[in-house]
Amino acid sequence: MKQNKWRIISLGIAIFIIGVTFPFWYGKGESPVPPALDLDTPEISLLTEKKCIEDTAFMRTKHMKLLKAWRDEAVREGERLYTAGDGRVFEKSLTGSCLGCHSNKERFCDRCHNYVGVAPTCYDCHIIPGEVKK
């Protein structure tokens, strides 16, 4: 009985430790390389000033908010032009504006999305120019 008790206790503690240290041994200690975003597309190389519609920090954290606002304004209210912070005007279009420059979805959008485990539903409907759906 006594021995049996300690067998169960040590089994429980082992399960606990293996469970909470899961991330430490799952990756076998290899440091993953943070995603490097590929900006080398024909369209971007043609730009004289390499600048997205807003600054990088804004785009990194809030691009999904922007796209959602665009969707609502363009589809529901018919306002199809976006005036950026610095006064430039763009068409509110994922396929036209965003993917026009960033035509390399697999080397741009997907890299971060896969890294942080995000599955945006954008591409359920939107066509990726030049991409063959597998």
Binding site: G27, K62, M64, V116
Partner: peptide, 19 residues
Amino acid sequence: FPVDLNEIKTMTMGWVTFT
């Protein structure tokens, strides 16, 4: 108030790989 998840995951992965 969205944050840059890339930075966060780089930090957390640094923890679990002891770097």
